[in-house]
Amino acid sequence: MTTPASPRLKAQRRAGLLLTAPAIVALVLLVLLPSSAVIILSLTDYQLGNTQAAFVGFANYRTIAADPDFRHSVRNTLVFVGLVVPGSIIPGLLFALLIEGRTRFKSVYRTAFFLPVTATLVAMSTAWEVLLHPTFGLVNTLLFAAGADKLRFLSNPGIALYAIAGIGIWKQIGFNVVLFLAGLSTIPRELYEAASLDGAEGGWRRYLLVTGPALAPVMLFVTIITTIRAFSEFDTVAVLTDGGPVHSTSVVLFVLYEEAFRYLKIGTGSAIAVMFLMFIALLSLVQTRLAGRARHV
Protein backbone atom coordinates (compact mmCIF):
# COMPACT_ATOMS: atom_id res chain seq x y z
CA MET A 1 0.00 0.00 0.00
CA THR A 2 1.21 3.44 -0.80
CA THR A 3 -0.56 5.39 1.95
CA PRO A 4 1.87 7.19 4.22
CA ALA A 5 2.66 5.35 7.42
CA SER A 6 0.32 6.37 10.19
CA PRO A 7 1.60 7.00 13.72
CA ARG A 8 0.06 3.71 14.80
CA LEU A 9 1.91 1.77 12.15
CA LYS A 10 5.11 3.65 12.88
CA ALA A 11 4.83 2.79 16.56
CA GLN A 12 4.37 -0.89 15.75
CA ARG A 13 7.30 -0.87 13.37
CA ARG A 14 9.46 0.76 16.01
CA ALA A 15 8.37 -1.81 18.58
CA GLY A 16 9.07 -4.60 16.09
CA LEU A 17 12.61 -3.44 15.56
CA LEU A 18 13.13 -2.79 19.26
CA LEU A 19 11.93 -6.24 20.29
CA THR A 20 14.05 -8.02 17.68
CA ALA A 21 17.09 -5.81 18.34
CA PRO A 22 18.64 -8.03 21.07
CA ALA A 23 18.26 -11.09 18.85
CA ILE A 24 19.72 -9.29 15.85
CA VAL A 25 22.65 -7.89 17.82
CA ALA A 26 23.41 -11.27 19.39
CA LEU A 27 23.03 -13.05 16.07
CA VAL A 28 25.38 -10.65 14.32
CA LEU A 29 27.98 -10.48 17.10
CA LEU A 30 27.98 -14.14 18.07
CA VAL A 31 27.18 -15.98 14.86
CA LEU A 32 27.27 -14.02 11.63
CA LEU A 33 30.28 -11.83 12.32
CA PRO A 34 32.49 -14.60 13.73
CA SER A 35 31.43 -16.90 10.91
CA SER A 36 32.47 -14.26 8.40
CA ALA A 37 35.66 -13.65 10.35
CA VAL A 38 36.56 -17.31 10.17
CA ILE A 39 36.44 -17.08 6.37
CA ILE A 40 38.80 -14.09 6.46
CA LEU A 41 41.08 -15.78 8.99
CA SER A 42 41.33 -18.81 6.74
CA LEU A 43 42.93 -16.56 4.11
CA THR A 44 45.58 -15.11 6.45
CA ASP A 45 48.56 -16.27 8.46
CA TYR A 46 47.16 -14.82 11.68
CA GLN A 47 48.68 -16.09 14.92
CA LEU A 48 47.09 -15.72 18.32
CA GLY A 49 48.64 -12.70 20.05
CA ASN A 50 49.67 -10.98 16.85
CA THR A 51 48.23 -7.60 16.00
CA GLN A 52 48.85 -8.01 12.29
CA ALA A 53 48.30 -10.70 9.75
CA ALA A 54 49.21 -11.10 6.11
CA PHE A 55 46.84 -12.19 3.37
CA VAL A 56 48.03 -15.52 2.07
CA GLY A 57 45.31 -16.44 -0.38
CA PHE A 58 44.40 -20.11 -0.40
CA ALA A 59 47.69 -21.21 1.11
CA ASN A 60 45.97 -22.61 4.22
CA TYR A 61 43.57 -24.61 2.10
CA ARG A 62 46.48 -25.98 0.05
CA THR A 63 48.25 -26.89 3.27
CA ILE A 64 45.39 -28.89 4.71
CA ALA A 65 44.56 -30.43 1.33
CA ALA A 66 48.10 -31.74 1.21
CA ASP A 67 48.12 -32.80 4.84
CA PRO A 68 47.80 -36.61 5.04
CA ASP A 69 46.37 -36.38 8.55
CA PHE A 70 43.54 -34.17 7.35
CA ARG A 71 42.84 -36.32 4.32
CA HIS A 72 42.79 -39.28 6.60
CA SER A 73 40.28 -37.57 8.86
CA VAL A 74 37.99 -36.82 5.93
CA ARG A 75 38.08 -40.47 4.96
CA ASN A 76 37.41 -41.50 8.58
CA THR A 77 34.51 -39.09 8.82
CA LEU A 78 32.96 -40.38 5.61
CA VAL A 79 33.26 -43.96 6.83
CA PHE A 80 31.74 -42.94 10.17
CA VAL A 81 28.83 -41.13 8.45
CA GLY A 82 28.37 -44.02 6.04
CA LEU A 83 28.01 -46.41 8.99
CA VAL A 84 26.00 -44.30 11.41
CA VAL A 85 23.39 -42.88 9.00
CA PRO A 86 21.94 -46.16 7.71
CA GLY A 87 22.91 -47.95 10.92
CA SER A 88 20.77 -45.71 13.07
CA ILE A 89 17.93 -44.80 10.70
CA ILE A 90 16.87 -48.24 9.45
CA PRO A 91 16.80 -49.96 12.86
CA GLY A 92 15.43 -46.74 14.36
CA LEU A 93 12.44 -46.84 12.02
CA LEU A 94 11.99 -50.56 12.57
CA PHE A 95 12.00 -50.25 16.35
CA ALA A 96 9.64 -47.28 16.22
CA LEU A 97 7.17 -49.24 14.07
CA LEU A 98 7.41 -52.23 16.42
CA ILE A 99 6.87 -50.05 19.48
CA GLU A 100 3.92 -48.26 17.87
CA GLY A 101 2.27 -51.61 17.19
CA ARG A 102 2.51 -52.77 20.83
CA THR A 103 -0.31 -52.38 23.28
CA ARG A 104 1.71 -53.34 26.39
CA PHE A 105 5.17 -52.21 27.53
CA LYS A 106 5.00 -49.30 25.08
CA SER A 107 6.17 -46.74 27.62
CA VAL A 108 8.86 -49.10 28.93
CA TYR A 109 10.38 -49.39 25.48
CA ARG A 110 10.00 -45.70 24.86
CA THR A 111 11.84 -44.89 28.06
CA ALA A 112 14.62 -47.36 27.22
CA PHE A 113 15.20 -45.80 23.81
CA PHE A 114 14.95 -42.34 25.30
CA LEU A 115 17.85 -42.97 27.69
CA PRO A 116 20.76 -42.44 25.26
CA VAL A 117 19.12 -39.18 24.10
CA THR A 118 19.53 -37.44 27.45
CA ALA A 119 22.43 -39.33 28.96
CA THR A 120 25.71 -37.45 28.86
CA LEU A 121 27.68 -38.91 25.97
CA VAL A 122 31.01 -38.42 27.72
CA ALA A 123 29.86 -40.57 30.63
CA MET A 124 28.30 -43.16 28.37
CA SER A 125 31.48 -43.31 26.31
CA THR A 126 33.50 -44.18 29.38
CA ALA A 127 30.97 -46.91 30.17
CA TRP A 128 31.33 -48.27 26.64
CA GLU A 129 35.08 -48.14 27.02
CA VAL A 130 34.83 -50.50 29.95
CA LEU A 131 32.29 -52.71 28.18
CA LEU A 132 34.69 -52.93 25.23
CA HIS A 133 37.75 -53.52 27.38
CA PRO A 134 40.08 -56.07 25.76
CA THR A 135 40.37 -58.33 28.82
CA PHE A 136 37.42 -57.91 31.18
CA GLY A 137 34.91 -56.01 29.01
CA LEU A 138 31.45 -57.55 28.85
CA VAL A 139 31.39 -57.53 25.06
CA ASN A 140 34.60 -59.52 24.90
CA THR A 141 33.34 -61.89 27.59
CA LEU A 142 30.34 -62.59 25.37
CA LEU A 143 32.53 -62.93 22.26
CA PHE A 144 34.75 -65.37 24.08
CA ALA A 145 31.79 -67.34 25.31
CA ALA A 146 30.59 -67.55 21.72
CA GLY A 147 33.90 -69.03 20.74
CA ALA A 148 35.33 -65.96 19.03
CA ASP A 149 38.58 -64.21 19.76
CA LYS A 150 38.65 -61.23 22.09
CA LEU A 151 39.13 -57.96 20.26
CA ARG A 152 41.11 -54.84 21.23
CA PHE A 153 38.27 -52.64 20.10
CA LEU A 154 39.70 -49.23 20.85
CA SER A 155 43.40 -49.90 20.47
CA ASN A 156 43.41 -51.86 17.24
CA PRO A 157 43.76 -49.34 14.37
CA GLY A 158 41.83 -51.70 12.11
CA ILE A 159 38.64 -51.72 14.17
CA ALA A 160 38.74 -48.66 16.45
CA LEU A 161 36.76 -46.54 13.99
CA TYR A 162 34.06 -49.22 13.78
CA ALA A 163 33.86 -49.37 17.57
CA ILE A 164 33.46 -45.57 17.71
CA ALA A 165 30.78 -45.82 14.99
CA GLY A 166 29.03 -48.50 17.04
CA ILE A 167 28.81 -46.09 19.99
CA GLY A 168 27.59 -43.39 17.58
CA ILE A 169 24.85 -45.71 16.30
CA TRP A 170 23.85 -46.61 19.85
CA LYS A 171 23.52 -42.93 20.69
CA GLN A 172 21.65 -41.98 17.51
CA ILE A 173 19.19 -44.91 17.33
CA GLY A 174 17.45 -43.69 20.48
CA PHE A 175 17.16 -40.18 19.09
CA ASN A 176 15.73 -41.44 15.80
CA VAL A 177 13.27 -43.81 17.48
CA VAL A 178 11.96 -40.90 19.52
CA LEU A 179 11.54 -38.73 16.42
CA PHE A 180 9.90 -41.51 14.40
CA LEU A 181 7.52 -42.23 17.28
CA ALA A 182 6.56 -38.55 17.40
CA GLY A 183 5.93 -38.66 13.64
CA LEU A 184 3.94 -41.90 13.83
CA SER A 185 1.68 -40.51 16.54
CA THR A 186 0.52 -37.73 14.20
CA ILE A 187 -0.78 -40.16 11.54
CA PRO A 188 -4.58 -40.25 11.85
CA ARG A 189 -6.03 -43.65 12.65
CA GLU A 190 -8.66 -43.17 9.92
CA LEU A 191 -5.90 -43.45 7.32
CA TYR A 192 -5.15 -46.99 8.47
CA GLU A 193 -8.83 -47.87 8.59
CA ALA A 194 -9.28 -46.54 5.07
CA ALA A 195 -6.23 -48.51 3.95
CA SER A 196 -7.54 -51.78 5.37
CA LEU A 197 -10.91 -51.13 3.69
CA ASP A 198 -8.97 -50.72 0.47
CA GLY A 199 -7.53 -54.17 1.03
CA ALA A 200 -4.09 -53.20 2.32
CA GLU A 201 -4.11 -55.74 5.13
CA GLY A 202 -0.50 -56.78 5.45
CA GLY A 203 1.98 -54.73 7.45
CA TRP A 204 4.24 -54.11 4.50
CA ARG A 205 1.48 -52.94 2.18
CA ARG A 206 0.07 -50.75 4.92
CA TYR A 207 3.50 -49.22 5.32
CA LEU A 208 3.84 -48.49 1.61
CA LEU A 209 0.34 -47.05 1.37
CA VAL A 210 0.03 -45.03 4.58
CA THR A 211 2.98 -44.95 6.95
CA GLY A 212 5.77 -44.36 4.46
CA PRO A 213 4.25 -41.35 2.71
CA ALA A 214 2.94 -39.84 5.96
CA LEU A 215 6.34 -40.24 7.55
CA ALA A 216 8.27 -38.79 4.59
CA PRO A 217 8.85 -35.33 6.13
CA VAL A 218 10.05 -36.88 9.41
CA MET A 219 12.24 -39.27 7.45
CA LEU A 220 13.84 -36.36 5.62
CA PHE A 221 14.38 -34.47 8.86
CA VAL A 222 15.85 -37.53 10.57
CA THR A 223 18.17 -38.22 7.65
CA ILE A 224 19.51 -34.69 7.55
CA ILE A 225 19.94 -34.32 11.28
CA THR A 226 21.58 -37.74 11.58
CA THR A 227 23.99 -36.83 8.80
CA ILE A 228 24.84 -33.50 10.42
CA ARG A 229 25.30 -35.12 13.81
CA ALA A 230 27.44 -37.91 12.39
CA PHE A 231 29.55 -35.38 10.57
CA SER A 232 29.91 -33.44 13.85
CA GLU A 233 31.22 -36.46 15.77
CA PHE A 234 33.67 -35.29 18.40
CA ASP A 235 32.94 -36.32 22.00
CA THR A 236 33.64 -40.04 21.83
CA VAL A 237 36.84 -39.57 19.86
CA ALA A 238 38.09 -36.79 22.11
CA VAL A 239 37.40 -38.74 25.29
CA LEU A 240 38.24 -42.33 24.35
CA THR A 241 40.85 -42.41 21.60
CA ASP A 242 42.27 -38.93 21.17
CA GLY A 243 42.14 -39.62 17.43
CA GLY A 244 44.24 -42.72 17.69
CA PRO A 245 45.48 -45.28 17.46
CA VAL A 246 47.64 -43.94 14.61
CA HIS A 247 44.98 -41.46 13.49
CA SER A 248 42.55 -44.28 12.79
CA THR A 249 39.67 -42.51 14.58
CA SER A 250 40.68 -38.94 13.87
CA VAL A 251 37.55 -37.24 12.44
CA VAL A 252 37.26 -33.78 10.87
CA LEU A 253 35.99 -31.93 13.93
CA PHE A 254 38.68 -33.52 16.04
CA VAL A 255 41.38 -32.33 13.62
CA LEU A 256 39.74 -28.90 13.60
CA TYR A 257 39.86 -28.82 17.39
CA GLU A 258 43.50 -29.93 17.49
CA GLU A 259 44.67 -27.48 14.81
CA ALA A 260 42.87 -24.46 16.23
CA PHE A 261 42.90 -24.97 19.97
CA ARG A 262 45.70 -27.40 20.75
CA TYR A 263 48.34 -26.23 18.26
CA LEU A 264 46.76 -22.77 17.85
CA LYS A 265 47.18 -22.87 14.07
CA ILE A 266 44.44 -20.31 13.44
CA GLY A 267 44.82 -20.15 9.66
CA THR A 268 44.56 -23.85 8.87
CA GLY A 269 42.00 -24.37 11.65
CA SER A 270 39.84 -21.67 10.10
CA ALA A 271 40.16 -23.27 6.68
CA ILE A 272 38.83 -26.54 8.11
CA ALA A 273 36.00 -24.65 9.82
CA VAL A 274 35.05 -23.01 6.52
CA MET A 275 34.96 -26.36 4.77
CA PHE A 276 32.83 -27.76 7.59
CA LEU A 277 30.48 -24.78 7.22
CA MET A 278 30.22 -25.34 3.50
CA PHE A 279 29.28 -28.96 4.01
CA ILE A 280 26.61 -28.06 6.58
CA ALA A 281 25.26 -25.33 4.29
CA LEU A 282 25.07 -27.83 1.44
CA LEU A 283 23.10 -30.27 3.59
CA SER A 284 20.75 -27.52 4.74
CA LEU A 285 20.22 -26.47 1.15
CA VAL A 286 19.39 -30.02 0.14
CA GLN A 287 16.98 -30.29 3.02
CA THR A 288 15.24 -27.01 2.22
CA ARG A 289 14.87 -28.04 -1.42
CA LEU A 290 13.57 -31.50 -0.62
CA ALA A 291 11.29 -30.22 2.13
CA GLY A 292 9.86 -27.66 -0.27
CA ARG A 293 9.18 -30.36 -2.82
CA ALA A 294 7.68 -32.70 -0.24
CA ARG A 295 5.21 -30.01 0.75
CA HIS A 296 4.05 -29.54 -2.82
CA VAL A 297 3.52 -33.18 -3.63
Binding site: A23, V38, A260
Partner: peptide, 29 residues
Protein backbone atom coordinates in the same frame (compact mmCIF):
# COMPACT_ATOMS: atom_id res chain seq x y z
CA UNK B 1 4.25 -6.90 14.47
CA UNK B 2 4.40 -5.80 10.84
CA UNK B 3 7.75 -4.02 10.91
CA UNK B 4 9.94 -3.22 7.96
CA UNK B 5 12.83 -5.61 7.46
CA UNK B 6 10.96 -8.53 8.98
CA UNK B 7 11.82 -10.88 6.08
CA UNK B 8 15.48 -9.92 6.35
CA UNK B 9 15.54 -10.58 10.07
CA UNK B 10 13.81 -13.87 9.49
CA UNK B 11 16.27 -14.90 6.81
CA UNK B 12 19.19 -13.97 9.08
CA UNK B 13 17.79 -16.15 11.84
CA UNK B 14 17.34 -19.10 9.45
CA UNK B 15 20.94 -18.59 8.38
CA UNK B 16 22.16 -18.37 11.96
CA UNK B 17 20.27 -21.50 12.86
CA UNK B 18 22.21 -23.53 10.32
CA UNK B 19 25.62 -22.60 11.66
CA UNK B 20 26.99 -25.00 14.29
CA UNK B 21 29.16 -23.67 17.12
CA UNK B 22 32.35 -25.11 15.61
CA UNK B 23 32.26 -22.60 12.75
CA UNK B 24 32.42 -19.30 14.67
CA UNK B 25 34.39 -20.95 17.48
CA UNK B 26 37.83 -19.69 16.44
CA UNK B 27 36.96 -15.97 16.22
CA UNK B 28 34.81 -16.28 19.36
CA UNK B 29 37.75 -17.85 21.17
Amino acid sequence: LPFRGRPVVFAAIVLGLMIPIQVPAIPLY
